[in-house]
Amino acid sequence: MTGAEPTSPPLLAAGALVRSHLSGSTLIPAVRGISLQIDRGEFVAVTGPSGAGKSTLLHLLGGLLRPDEGELWLDGRRVDRLREAAWARLRRRHYGIVFQSGNLLSDFSVADNIELTAVLAGMPGRTARERRRELLNDLGLAHKATAGPGELSGGERQRVALARALVNRPQLLLADEPTGNLDSRSTRDVLALLARYHRQGTTIVLVTHDARAASTADRVISLFDGRIADDARVEEPPAAWQSATGVRGVIDFGG
């Protein structure tokens, strides 16, 4: 055999995406030409000040908004022109999506909200129940299984939305500020869960303002004013770092 091995296309590729929002009668550009590639198995954090275009970008990547200009490729296939029904199918099959609002079904219990998503995607009820139990456990919400979304705090609702997004073990998880309303301990639980799914092969794109969440990723894309200002790998600190350094460099110990 001759020739190079066929390289598989990136899981997600965006070319010069542009998207504006209408505010009153003026068009406000939110994303002004973003190109990026995300490979299978990557864990990418997208950060930037509010108004930088983070959420718009995430909506574009998930097909929940269409670009005004530019292209989007999923797994080597151009998808920015697909109709909504085709997008809905793609999302059900490949994506897990968590948005800030949570979007839980208010008439169903926490458990049903999660299990229903799995069953609709074709998972046997029993497996769905097991996965739901596991996820709620990992997120410290086992005791809320029978509660309705109305009885949950903002942070709890967010974690349930995350459980729902992960129940089908998606190839690609898109998450918008999943630690936004969480206290320190819940943040730790959520980040640990994301790290585990990442280790098991899930590709993750995380929009976040939380530096702890961003530093869990392998790569941090910083948006500014609708464009990419920086795209950097997160470096593993050397193993010897912590015993020698501790928190020095951040906290001053007075020499």
């Binding site: 702890r212 530093s215 950097a232």
Partner: peptide, 25 residues
């Protein structure tokens, strides 16, 4: 200035990564 800000941000995030590690141990 943008280079300086980007480099400093990278530095902070890498430090944060180290702190996550430390918190785990």
């Amino acid at each position: 200035q943008l280079t300086l800000i980007n480099n400093q941000r990278r530095h902070c995030i890498n430090m944060m990564r180290g702190l996550n590690r430390l918190a785990a141990t």
